[in-house]
Amino acid sequence: MIRKICCLFLLLVVYSSCQKSKAQKSVYPNHVGDTAFDEKIDDPNFKVCTTGRIPQYYEFGKSLQFKGEKPAIDKHFEILKQNESTAESGYITIRFIVNCEGKTGRYRIEEMSNDYQPMSFDKNLVEKILTLTKELSGWIVGGNPEQPVDYYQYLTFKIEGGKLIEIMP
């Protein structure tokens, strides 16, 4: 009997590890855009409150939620409109999580040329945009006051000749 139970247990372990490796083989995360914690780059003090899927900002049907709305964000980045002219044009996207306390973390950067190809902007410009993004305070918590939730947000910066032209979304 004990032998049978042991065999059954072993079978279960093998099956479970097969399932895990099957999931690991997928080229996709659980959801497109999911950002797992990376100890090399992420702040360990930044906590997410949601245990399951973290929704996207647009899923609340309220668009971007920031105190002072988009003009407050535009004003915060205004300094980048005065940048020195360079030959660089394209888009820099910073994606991050706004947690249930309105704090932000797990920043990821995507740089793209005007013809939608990956590219690398001047490191100083990217660093400046990232720092300014981290300094933004005014993100409105997702969900409702009784049940606040985390969410994914992104900001895309359209750059022309090294200067900031527009911020999206």
Partner: peptide, 9 residues
């Protein structure tokens, strides 16, 4: 989903 989540490439 890539469009909506900012992965434009």
């Amino acid at each position: 989903p890539y469009l909506k989540r900012g992965d434009f490439v």
